[in-house]
Amino acid sequence: MSPEPGSINLTDRIRGGVDPMVPRIYNVERIRRNNHDTFTMELNPADGGNPEPFSAGQFNMLYIFGVGEIPVSISGDPVQDGPLMHTIREVGTVTRAMARLKPGDSIGVRGPFGSHWPVELAVGTDVVIVAGGIGLAPLRPVIYQVTGNRSRYGRMVLLYGARAPKEILYQRQLKAWGGSFDMDVHVTVDRGERGWNGEIGVVTGLIRRAPLDRSGAIALICGPEIMMRFSAQELLRRGMDKDRIYVSMERNMKCGVGLCGHCQYGAKIICKDGPVYRYDDIESLLGRREV
């Protein structure tokens, strides 16, 4: 994928004297709870400079000193100045340690790494975002970018599936986006609860009913791999072309620069070639047990 204007290229950064293996120290500015096991961390460089610029869909390696380092997608606005934002789910030792950080604590950040969502390709066409669970976080930068320059794009449709109403991410923002009259927001949950009058069912059901211009629309999918597979198949059934569908893959990234091979996926190295892929580039790998 060719870089977008203004996108961040790792080679340029190395030429500029940045060693991608050395973390830059950031301080925790604020931690906000999104739901019972997910939080968003806002970080600023300890040296007083600006956070590294990034493109929507890229990730950083976040290092809790003495505990470990993990890859986390960037969930903030790629266009506006402001703190670096990561939305994180507590699923292991490092993320649990991150949840215990307090404002002023330090964290190491390497990145941004990887490919990005092809937001420029969407100019003049409809944008369909299909997200599942925490998969909304890597797509939020796209929403910021599109809503920040709304007239450049066609219809914007956000289809989001969560496990239960209380686990819906960015609830206030979803309500605001849905009420903004220039974005179709549809949310469904796998399990309803008392008081929930919204949709119950899987996100693929939303795709069947979504208003989209299938001839030109671009679809960006992020969530559990099975959900992405089924969503892509449903979009294809709706008449979308394979080369207009993009997915974000997740593997155990370690070095972030394609050297260690930890995140190898078939012939691809996800930290370097991905995490964002055009669907037809990885279709043959999806669902294969050996990779």
Binding site: D37, E90, G132, G133, G161, D190, G201, T204, G223, I226
Partner: peptide, 15 residues
């Protein structure tokens, strides 16, 4: 299909 996906609890936290 939907019921099977729901049964998998794809968005569940492994922890």
């Amino acid at each position: 299909d939907a019921a099977r996906l729901q049964l998998l609890d794809l968005y569940g936290n492994p922890e």
